[in-house]
Amino acid sequence: MSESEAAVEPLLKLEQITAAYPVKGKRLLGKKTLLRAVDRVSLNVYTGETLGLVGESGCGKSTLGRTIVRLERPHTGRLIFEGRDITTLGQREMRPFRTRLQMIFQDPYTSLNPRRTVLDTLAEPYVVHRLAPRTDIPGKVAKLLDMVGLPRASMQRLPHEFSGGQRQRLGIARAIAFEPKLIVCDEPVSALDVSIQAQVLNLMADLQRELKLTYLFISHGIGAVNYISTRVAVMYLGRLVEVGDRKELFLRPKHPYTRILLRAHPPADPLLRERPRTPIAGEVPNLLNPPSGCRFHTRCPFAQERCRAEEPQLPEGQPHAAACHYPLA
């Protein structure tokens, strides 16, 4: 965290968040074995920024996103949103926060009711949360369609009549209908063609400026994160390993996992494709039995004895921090 950030109260504050699930049929000393998909994650999200959350598939990114919007309840830790602890709020108590805390899902088709028209789908937020009189709702929906670049004539169409990119635009329209403060974007472009990805990312950037939105942008795609993010947090096996300003982190990564993750991604510039790509060696460890010490030490080319014995912590109060005993220069 920079000095300027330290003086500003975060919009969202995660304090040692753990998301754990009992594993059926597995017990240790009479107790159920827990799979910790997210393990003691602390993170701040500031108003107006786009915080990119990146890591390999299965590292816990999506679980963390679902936990933030309270589709999952944290096992331990605290979620502070707009200065209010929402960690243990019930469904009724959470209802006022639902309009200010929204989510865009990876697969828009499965998140849209196939039997409901666009008008019905986009009208639902206004009806359920009583955001507008019923007579005004068609006009509100028409305005949403304008904002996401879809024709007003599509109001009576069903989800299967749209392309993947158009369905994602519907998902974005549904999220912004609430006029939220924070939108958690869970792999919003990973299922789309590259050309369509760029269009959706540009739309999200335009809406952010127009509506003063804050994004938590979850993705395993380095290119999308680099394009849209202000800051970046890197996740590995349920834990954060590095957090920093996007430009600084991409130019000078401190954690070996971050550097290898960046080098494993093909560069967008064809002139840079001579740069050797470095695949990440080894297999991702089992979350039921994570390695001792640093969780990345089983795959890290720089691991030493201390890495195997002592778990590194992510330093607080630094604008660019890495959970590594021997951070890269």
Rank of each mutant, 00 (worst) to 15 (best):
D85P: 10
T18R: 01
M147N: 00
L192I: 11
Y21D: 13
L53T: 09
R36C: 01
R66E: 07
A329Y: 00
I104M: 12
P279I: 11
L287I: 06
I222T: 01
G90T: 03
E179F: 01
R40L: 07
V184Q: 04
P188N: 07
L122S: 06
V23F: 12
I218R: 03
A153E: 15
T67C: 02
E56I: 12
L328W: 04
E9M: 06
E316M: 12
G223I: 07
G282L: 10
N44P: 12
Q304T: 15
S229H: 11
L35R: 08
A309E: 13
C185A: 10
V38Y: 03
E248Y: 02
L101S: 03
A329T: 06
D186H: 13
V225C: 12
C185V: 04
R295F: 13
L213D: 05
Y227N: 04
Y126F: 15
G165E: 04
L71F: 15
A6I: 13
H325M: 03
G293L: 10
P315N: 06
Y21P: 03
K31T: 07
E210Q: 14
R295H: 15
H160Y: 13
S62V: 10
P114E: 07
D107H: 01
I86E: 00
L51S: 05
L79W: 11
R116M: 15
K247I: 04
E15Q: 14
E72H: 13
E210G: 05
A19N: 08
P188C: 11
L144A: 05
H265R: 06
A37D: 06
T88D: 12
P10W: 04
E210N: 04
L287N: 02
G25T: 10
G221Y: 01
T18E: 08
Q199E: 13
T99F: 03
L14T: 07
L35W: 00
N226E: 15
S57L: 07
S195C: 01
H297S: 07
G55L: 08
R73E: 15
K13L: 14
A205F: 00
F178K: 05
S219D: 05
Y215A: 05
T47R: 15
L328H: 11
N202R: 14
H325S: 00
G58M: 06
A329I: 00
L314V: 03
L112V: 10
D39S: 08
P301F: 08
C185F: 09
S42I: 09
C185D: 07
R246I: 11
G223M: 01
P22H: 10
L182N: 11
R66A: 00
A303P: 02
T18H: 05
T67Y: 04
L34H: 05
Q168C: 03
S229R: 06
V38E: 09
L237C: 11
R134C: 06
A281I: 09
K31N: 14
I68N: 07
A19Q: 14
I17Y: 06
V23E: 14
G221E: 15
G282C: 03
H297G: 00
F105W: 06
Q313D: 07
P108Q: 10
